[in-house]
Simulated assay, not measured.
Amino acid sequence: MKYWIVIICALFAFNQPASANDLSDIAGGGPPSDRMAVLQTLNIYLSVTDGKDRSAIAKSFHPTAFLMSVSSKGALRSLTQDFWWERVSQIPDDQPSRTSRVLIIDVSGHAAIARIDITNGGDGTTSTDYFNLQKTSAGWRIVNKTLSQPI
């Protein structure tokens, strides 16, 4: 019997989202099923950069989503998904891994907010991404991403 428990636990761990977070580690509120669906969308988003998976953009972002930042001089910038992919695709393959942690998922009706903190493996610098998501007919999609660091 003990071996079956180990096998079941191993299978469960294998199917967990890529971020290694579960809802018990994430602040916020709303129905657990919606919060888990938002977490799955965010994990797909993380595979864009972590796995250089361009197809993950269409799976996690609504086509009209905005990506917002400021320039180094403080001017507001609206970035396209194509521009963001070009930046991601230029990251060297030998770049040290980064750590991403989902800290907040809060759901109300068809709207959600989320926060992900990112620590770069090479120099230890951190940044935060904020997200607005909407529950669409295709599921939860990111409709706005706001970066904490200038681009």
Rank of each mutant, 00 (worst) to 15 (best):
K2W: 13
T41D: 04
G29K: 14
Q40W: 02
S69N: 06
I7Y: 03
D22Y: 11
R77S: 02
F12N: 10
T49C: 13
N21D: 12
L133Q: 09
C9H: 00
S100M: 12
I44S: 04
L46R: 01
K52H: 12
T128W: 07
P31G: 13
G109S: 13
C9Q: 03
Q90R: 15
N43L: 04
G29D: 15
S137Q: 09
L147C: 07
G74S: 08
F131M: 05
L103K: 03
T64P: 00
L103G: 01
G139R: 04
L133G: 07
L147W: 08
M68N: 13
Y45R: 05
S137C: 00
K145H: 06
Q134P: 00
D34P: 06
L133A: 08
A13C: 11
T99D: 11
M36T: 13
G139H: 01
F131L: 02
D106T: 10
F14L: 13
V88Y: 12
N132C: 01
A58E: 05
D129W: 06
N21T: 10
N120C: 02
S78Q: 15
D123G: 08
T128C: 05
L103I: 06
G30I: 00
S108E: 14
T41M: 03
S33P: 00
T126G: 08
A27W: 07
Y3K: 14
T80A: 11
I91S: 15
L42P: 02
D82N: 10
S47D: 13
A114W: 03
Q16F: 01
I142C: 10
S24P: 00
G74T: 11
L67H: 10
P63F: 00
L42K: 04
W85Y: 14
G30N: 08
A27P: 00
S100K: 11
W84V: 14
I105G: 04
R87E: 15
A18N: 03
A20V: 09
S97L: 14
I118N: 09
T136M: 03
S148G: 14
L147G: 01
T80G: 15
T49S: 15
M68A: 05
D53M: 03
L23I: 06
Q90I: 04
I26G: 05
T41A: 11
S108C: 07
M1E: 09
D82Y: 05
W84Q: 15
S89K: 15
Q90E: 10
A65K: 04
V70Y: 06
P63W: 00
S24G: 15
V102K: 06
D25E: 14
D25M: 15
P96L: 07
A75I: 05
V102I: 15
N15W: 01
S71R: 11
G124N: 12
I113K: 02
T49F: 14
R101F: 11
